[in-house]
């Protein structure tokens, strides 16, 4: 009997372990109302996919989660977004520190024009995560290993990151993002510039990362959302119309628009 209660409590605590909790988020670009009343609980140690047609607001919303929209002057964010229960838009929060906790990977691989080593070492250095050169070497190696790139680059760490292939560059950017030991990883169409093999490698990596991070991925590939995520949110015209288990969304979605979009009947 006791055992059952403990198991239930454990399940319950897993259910409520929201890493990011957004409530009634509205985003404006000048007069344009880009995100309308979006509320979502993003779970820890799982992959959440944002899908929806171009211009639906999924990337805009993703960028709110680590305050990347701060860099756009005319952009205004309303509502609350909490990371572990703390409002990330609070005046006391340093956006740079926030982005070390909530890392980001972009559509096109954008390595720094520096060596492979320096690409990874840059973040840990500026955030003071390494006490010594040996420390830093350790961080670089472990980030590259976790990004499944170590074996391919360990003999040429001093070579420029821009000299790698597209798929390797993207994994380098993922390694760079995880080098600062973030808790959340945001990915904005991380595979759209990659070939199927590199895509599969990144997807394998996402699955691996899920064990320690909360991953949020924006993707135009429905199959990719279905393959990598546990939860899927469907955005349309700035609204989040449906958010549910990925298996539910792709077999029996509740919303007619979701159904139309994922089966290719939109318009």
């Amino acid at each position: 009997m006791n055992k059952t209660i403990t198991a239930e409590a454990q399940i319950a605590s897993n259910i409520v372990s929201a890493k990011i909790s957004a409530r009634k988020v509205n985003v404006f670009y000048g007069d344009t109302h880009a995100i309308k009343d979006v509320s979502i609980e993003i779970l820890d140690r799982s992959v959440t996919a944002f899908i929806g047609p171009s211009g639906c607001g999924k990337s805009t919303f993703l960028r709110c989660l680590n305050r990347m929209n701060d860099t756009i002057d005319i952009c205004r964010v309303e509502g609350t977004i909490e990371l572990d229960g703390h409002d990330i838009y609070d005046a006391s929060v340093d956006p740079v520190q926030l982005r070390a906790r909530v890392g980001m990977v972009f559509q096109k691989p954008n390595p720094f024009p520096k060596s492979i080593y320096d690409n990874i070492a840059y973040g840990p250095k500026i955030h003071g995560l390494a006490q010594s050169k040996a420390d830093l070497d350790g961080i670089v190696e472990s980030a590259l290993r976790r990004a499944a790139l170590w074996e391919e680059v360990k003999d040429r760490l001093a070579a420029p990151g821009t000299g790698l292939s597209g798929g390797q560059q993207q994994r380098l950017c993922i390694a760079r993002a995880i080098a600062t030991a973030p808790e959340v990883l945001l990915m904005d169409e991380p595979c759209s510039a990659l070939d199927p093999i590199a895509t599969a490698q990144v997807e394998e990596l996402i699955d691996e990362l899920r064990k320690s991070y909360s991953v949020v991925i924006v993707t135009h590939s429905m199959q990719q959302a279905a393959r990598v995520s546990q939860k899927t949110a469907f955005f349309h015209l700035g609204l989040m119309l449906e958010y549910d288990d990925t298996s539910k969304i792709f077999t029996n979605p509740d919303h007619e628009k979701t159904q139309a979009y994922i089966t290719g009947r939109f318009g």
Binding site: M222, Q223, A226, I249, F250, T251, N252, P253, T258, Q259, I262, T263
Partner: peptide, 9 residues
């Protein structure tokens, strides 16, 4: 076609 949802069913 990799059908999903109602198409898959």
């Amino acid at each position: 076609r990799q059908p999903v949802a109602s198409d898959l069913r």
